[in-house]
Design a binder for these strands. Sequence first.
DNA 1: CCGCGCAACATTAACGTTAACGTCCTACTG
DNA 2: CAGTAGGACGTTAACGTTAATGTTGCGCGG
Lengths: 348, 348
Amino acid sequence: MAGARRHTLRDIAATLNLSVNTVSRALSGKDGIGEETRARVRAEAERVGYVPNSMARSLVLGSAMTFGLAITNPSNPFYAQLISTIETRARSHGYSLLLTVTEESEEHEMRAAESLLRSSVSGSIVVPVQSGTEAWRRLGSVGVPTVLINRDLPDLGYRFVGTDNELGGYRATSHAIERGARSIVVLEEDLPITTIDHRIAGFRRAMAEAGLPVPRGSIMRVPTRRHEQAALPWQPQQAYQVARRMLRRTRLPDAVVAGNDYFALGLYRALEEHGLKVPDDMMVIGFGDHPFSAFLSPPLTTVRLPAEEIGTIAVDLLLEEISGTPIARPLKQLIAPTLVERGSTQRS
Amino acid sequence: MAGARRHTLRDIAATLNLSVNTVSRALSGKDGIGEETRARVRAEAERVGYVPNSMARSLVLGSAMTFGLAITNPSNPFYAQLISTIETRARSHGYSLLLTVTEESEEHEMRAAESLLRSSVSGSIVVPVQSGTEAWRRLGSVGVPTVLINRDLPDLGYRFVGTDNELGGYRATSHAIERGARSIVVLEEDLPITTIDHRIAGFRRAMAEAGLPVPRGSIMRVPTRRHEQAALPWQPQQAYQVARRMLRRTRLPDAVVAGNDYFALGLYRALEEHGLKVPDDMMVIGFGDHPFSAFLSPPLTTVRLPAEEIGTIAVDLLLEEISGTPIARPLKQLIAPTLVERGSTQRS
DNA sequence: CCGCGCAACATTAACGTTAACGTCCTACTG
DNA sequence: CAGTAGGACGTTAACGTTAATGTTGCGCGG
């Protein structure tokens, strides 16, 4: 790891007896440069392994060619795929990705926003913790294009791309009803997040349309304490315990709609221990279509979230906003999730 | 998203009738500044919402206070946790994280290295694709401290932190033998990666020590075509198909050691379809301890990889190298994985 | 043969910050 | 009371790049 100082434009200019500006223009392909000179500059740059200093470049250009991405938890498969999609798409347009992990903590979120601000990111894509709007308000107020994904912060008036969770909840529930369920329980995370509220709203709508009652106890909350285990995705363990509590009831539901596939997994175990068969004794529907879900026994019916689409649109929105083209898209954009029907709702 | 220009030190200096330098020192907490002046500066900075421009700062300081992280695939749970750990630890030391996704492609890797170089990262943590060393050689040659994780590139002589995969393979295999297995098959990914080779070497050592033969066909390869589905983790589907091929053999193994838990999952299905019970008819051991593995039926015995430890050490190595403290650690560091014994190897 | 225009380069300034060095004034020492 | 130390601030330069503006010299038309 030898500390060979990096070569600069000045170095090249000096060895070739040219001015710094000439070298700059030669390398950046601008005209007003003789072909022979350009070739000489290129050769020398190649020889010494010249790498432009993008900090100096950003400083003078006012743009860092970097997008900031604030994610609550990369171990959530949905967010992992978002990271992949966003990074790849951003890079294909010449932008780098500055990643911040907020761990569902407002304090981390503040630091993350501060960090993105300092770095003068050209734009940022944010999954807000949704416990406060302060952190991200400043980003917009200093003119950093910001797109919220997955969870909205309506107060800010930012662009938003997310899943139509209401529709997801509705489709999952309707599907269960179609397959014969009359009494349905929802197993949701214990976080004050709009995505969850919307899913529950969709559940209620489906039940109402079918004329089915939603008695007390239909919505069960799984305590997830994300703060303490930030690096881990939702633990099936907590859902398992809540499910066991549910199984002590005298009247059991015909179906359970779980807030994510890990919850469904915990439920699977509780049911197995209790001697109940999926789907004959109880149907199970998950959310997220995690990579393992298709291979459970029985394969899990689940709502597939449009991660790729959300990531792609988010980047495109930033690009359009930066380029100044008027954006012919709605301010808030909800992508419909699709229900993947599998064995856990397929009664024989 | 009003384009309010960002305030600079000069703005503050102007309104307070001070010099830029005074303002700078007041805010950065250096001495040689009157307490009253410092308070006035702080107040004004607060009032206008001053945010230091880290590009200008990096330019003059020569350090961007940024680490680069090159990951092949964030959807791999192991890498997802690495990202989490590394980001959090880096941030706690004041460093931001520039993330690049290489998608197991040498071409992407070249671009990633180039990008990190341009950004003058203070250090970088790299999971190499291992199809070539060229991309990362330059990083070191211009003095960027670089730590390889998970996969080594011995030619480069860089620091390396990874899992002791040989030991992992050995422990998994020994465990199966202890539990009575005599004929064992290994299901591994079809990539030319040292981690896989080491796991297989550990397998062979355990077999040899137990005096067991390793006939042809003991190592089965799962084609994974990562390039085509970069955003997805390993698909159980491919392992399932390979497993079915295996089940057509006349003599079946007593145990299968899978290269990762997704493979084990595919195997579970193949076995179930074939009417074979885990673990009584065949034991299964996975690699990675993915979050779902403890909740499979039966729960999967698997080798837990030390993601947190690797991420932490990698960041610490960079910090030490940057601070110039002599590092009292071996150049190559292998962390021992731990075997998590669960139901899939627990015969009744 | 004069002057104009243009190609090919050089010079200068600027981006926002930090570091090294200057300058002033006050207060203390002998 | 002269000398000086040091606190409080200002000035200057630098980081590496790009953009705006100068400066040559040469060819060409009138």
